[in-house]
């Protein structure tokens, strides 16, 4: 058993998993605050990557200008979606809202294809390029820096969530909407905030993913695996999203290498089925979710 190789593969998986975790947090944020299962999260991620592409490659802005602008763009998109489409659907059957997000995803993909065509593009580089070695184990620089950035963002988010007024308002709305209203929290504003923040985080994930493997309209498929991550972790648990993201990233990497690339997605979906059958509320989700 080549332990070094196994460690390398595991590290690569955890690196990829950090992106899953980041995107999953965006998803959980939306779910906790507005009770919407947003299947368009993959498409929002894609839009973020393309915004960076447009700003960085199309307008040739340097990355420290283009990235914040792309993030803001992603946030604006999130808020736009919430105000324009999700807010009117408030109170409707959650399955309808679910389908609306699928429709939104389709619109986003079509728009991106229209403007930038389906050809895959490379993003302008902004991460250091030398190989990283932990002990003797090799990690690709993109993966390593992606992990670091994702970890920093996640830590930042957790801090915000805990200590910032907006974060407290988010948590309050998430746990009991009625009480939040009663306490004078502007719940509609919290909704917009949640979607905007989630849009920014998704855009950030998109940029990191794009830096690793290029951008194309197919990036949106990432969203399906993120769906599995949040189910396994628990739809309303940030910690669950983190853990499940890393776990599934690791699992896909190991399966991909030891069983073969064809089995990567299969194993993920079998895990999903198992979790749904045995413990639908996930590792750390609240038990009542089943009563959807």
């Amino acid at each position: 058993m080549d332990w070094l190789f196994f460690i390398e593969v595991s590290l690569a998986g955890i690196g990829a998993g950090s992106l899953y975790a980041l995107t999953a947090i965006a998803f959980v944020l939306i779910y906790k605050a507005t009770r919407v299962i947003n299947l368009a999260i993959g498409e929002m991620l894609m839009v973020g990557a393309y915004l960076f592409f447009a700003l960085g490659a199309g307008w040739s802005l340097s990355w420290w200008l283009a990235i914040p602008m792309a993030l803001v763009g992603g946030g604006l998109l999130g808020m736009l979606l919430e105000r324009g489409v999700i807010r009117p659907m408030l109170g409707e059957n959650p399955i309808s809202v679910f389908m609306v997000t699928i429709g939104l995803g389709s619109i986003l993909v079509g728009t991106v294809e229209l403007i930038w065509t389906s050809a895959p593009r490379s993003l302008p580089g902004f991460m250091p390029d030398e190989a990283i070695f932990i002990g003797e184990a090799f990690i690709a620089p993109n993966t390593f820096w992606g992990f670091v950035i994702a970890a920093v963002v996640i830590a930042l988010f957790l801090l915000l969530f805990r200590f910032w007024r907006g974060g407290v308002a988010l948590r309050a709305t998430a746990s009991d909407q009625g009480a939040a209203w009663a306490m004078g929290i502007n719940v509609p504003a919290v909704y917009s905030l949640a979607w905007g923040l989630a849009g920014m985080i998704a855009a950030g994930s998109g940029i990191l993913l794009g830096a690793m493997s290029g951008v194309s309209p197919e990036m949106a498929m990432f969203g399906l695996t993120v769906l599995v991550v949040v189910i396994v972790g628990g739809l309303d648990s940030v910690f669950g999203a983190l853990l499940a993201g890393l776990l599934i990233g690791w699992m896909e990497s190991v399966v991909g290498v030891y069983l073969g690339g064809e089995y990567e997605h299969l194993v993920t979906f079998i895990l999903l089925m198992l979790v749904l059958l045995v413990r639908p509320w996930g590792l750390f989700g609240s038990h009542e979710i089943e009563r959807l």
Binding site: L227, V228, H265, L266, I270, L272, M273, L276, L277
Partner: peptide
Amino acid sequence: GLPSLRVKGLYLAIATIAASFILQF
């Protein structure tokens, strides 16, 4: 359809997505 005995609504929808991927495999 067996997952429908255990979960419903959106969870069931997601279970059917998983089923479709498994069938595709």
